[in-house]
Design a protein around this nucleic acid. Structure first.
Lengths: 337, 337
DNA sequence: CCCATGTGTTAAACTGTTTAAACACATGAA
DNA sequence: TTCATGTGTTTAAACAGTTTAACACATGGG
């Protein structure tokens, strides 16, 4: 920078102002300095810029403390959206994981206090992640992705889980299903509970309310989905459909059903939730609720950057979802179980 | 830092030295300063540290310019390994994507020149990614993950593709398969070409060499795998097995075979490569070669940090792979096609 | 002619750390 | 006593920018 200033016969401050498009610099000076910058191929050092300006132009994606958290298509889609958008807006993206040590060392606070990042996107978090509380009072720029909280007043962007669940349930019921098992996970997550409530509401409206024996926890994993299916089937051998809170559990369910020699969808229909890429390639292909995960990443990123730049209003957006009808659903078998 | 220095009656430099465990500081001073640091809850500003020390303690993961690149279990596993290891060693991880604009703007160079990061891990790159060349001459710390190049002398960590392919092919051949189609992708990738060579070698050794009509490109995607299977089947309706260069293409192949009413594995056996999480949950479950992708991420991260810290020797590691026998393979049908 | 106003530029202070060189001061040997 | 040596600490200069108050100068109005 010094070199540029010297060669253009101006002060360092002038060069800085040219770089930042300060309107107090005359056209002539601007052009002269710009030419020298190009000739010297000068590029400002972002570290120094951040040190001075207190903006890092870096965002963090904070993932829950799951093993191999990045090897997950659900998170992957969101992250893709965030990265694409952030890149376009000149922001960098860092990855962090809210492991117990991470929180214990207050690293989530340091993210801001030590100026590692300008803002944080929280994926896959739930009510038990008490560290979220620490973001509220200092009013740090944070957006919760695909969940929201009653107890904490945090900005969020979510998919319309109720709407998606309603479509899925209506579809099953129109096909004649009434004995429908529900596999969910993390009941403390608001979006999940929307799903459960919708499930209850629609069955009740149809005059055949379900009790808790029809609901099992599948931990959002394939194994969990399979195990949950086993438990459901043990209690209700006559069930004709399973509605899973995500695609992985649905795939686990199909896996278990096949193991037991049950045919999908002839004997049991299965509906998932997420519409991950490979759900279109399973056997049978999976009927599922499409979530705009990539788009949600894009929007969350947009809103976060707006907040970083001073936007004050709360963010609370809800994106529409829709059912994708594929091969894992069929008319309910008419005969016996 | 100033405050700490004042309160401990020492200079800022002394505080810095205490922080960095400089042996020239006496035990007494060290203790005194440390106490003040704790009392004030002082934490050094990493930006300023980086500005001074010229180390950012940040690594970049550079992904190829694929759509939704992060929504990929293959990359996801590697990234998980990298993040876990980097976190333990006190390094942060940034995400970058080698899109055309990114390269055109020489942002991959700026990563180093503007001191965004200390080192870069390149995932999913191939011989056509000429930007890799730019890293060689300045000797920037870069590790190529799961590929290597003959034309460029870059450090790498790979899985043993030859070994894995040999196990897969031997397994198929022991089950009586001889008419085996190969679905690969990106032939310019060394690791891929290991696979193809092994395929040719084993078939030739068995006295039934295959020509190029037995090989199709599947672009590493499910769609591609399905399309490749269609082409293979059109030419060789009598094939009894398909060996795919990754799990996604294998899943695409099974998808197409099912669509055509062919049973897997009774009529056609399918073997994949990668052993992604959900390959254990497909129908049928997928026989595949397990790649230690998470471990490769860990090791690549380790080696990169060693290089950043001055290690000079070239990195060229190869991790073992093994076949996982599941439900998509069976004895070759003895009768007609 | 004097002063208020506006425009372009600069010097200096600031961001928070590292590090090389200089500086006290005590010790031990000649 | 004098000088060399070693130890612990400080000084001051980087690192590479941004920001702000001040300044020089031109213009226009009273």
């Amino acid at each position: 920078m010094r070199e540029v200033a010297k060669m253009a016969n101006v002060s360092i401050a002038t060069v800085s102002m040219v770089l930042n498009g300060n309107p107090r610099i005359s056209k002539a000076t601007q052009l002269r300095v710009q030419r020298v910058i190009n000739k010297l191929g000068y590029r400002p050092n972002p570290l120094a810029q951040s040190l001075s300006s207190r903006y890092t132009r870096t965002l963090s994606i904070l993932l829950p403390p799951l093993r191999h958290a990045f090897a997950d298509l659900y998170f992957g889609e969101v992250i893709s959206g965030v990265c694409d958008r952030a890149g376009k807006l000149g922001y960098r993206v860092m990855l962090d994981q809210a492991k117990p040590d991470f929180i214990k060392d207050r690293k989530h606070i340091e993210l801001f206090e030590r100026r590692f990042v300008d803002g944080v996107l929280c994926l896959g978090c739930n009510d038990r992640h008490h560290f979220l509380e620490d973001f509220i009072e200092p009013n740090y720029p944070v957006i919760v992705v695909n969940n929201y909280f009653k107890r904490w007043n945090l900005d969020y962007v979510v998919c319309d889980y109720s709407g998606g669940a309603e479509q899925a349930m209506r579809c099953l019921m129109q096909m004649g299903h009434r004995r429908i098992g529900l596999i969910t996970a993390a009941p403390e997550v608001q979006t999940t509970s929307e799903l459960t409530q919708t499930y209850h509401r629609l069955l009740t409206e149809a005059g055949c309310p379900a009790d808790d024996t029809w609901i099992e926890d599948g931990a959002f994993t394939e194994e969990g989905g399979a195990a949950a299916t086993e438990r459901l089937l043990a209690r209700h051998p006559d069930l004709t459909a399973i509605f899973a809170g995500n695609d992985k559990m649905a795939i686990g369910a199909i896996h278990y059903l096949h193991q037991q020699g049950l045919r999908v969808p002839e004997q049991v229909s299965v509906v998932g939730f997420d519409d991950l890429k490979h759900s279109a390639y399973t056997s049978p292909t999976l009927t599922t609720v499409h979530l705009p995960l990539y788009e949600i990443g894009v929007i969350a990123c947009d809103r976060l950057i707006e907040r970083v730049r001073g936007r004050a209003e709360r963010v609370a957006e809800r994106l529409p979802t829709y059912l994708v009808l594929r091969g894992s659903t069929a008319l309910a078998p008419t005969g016996g179980a």
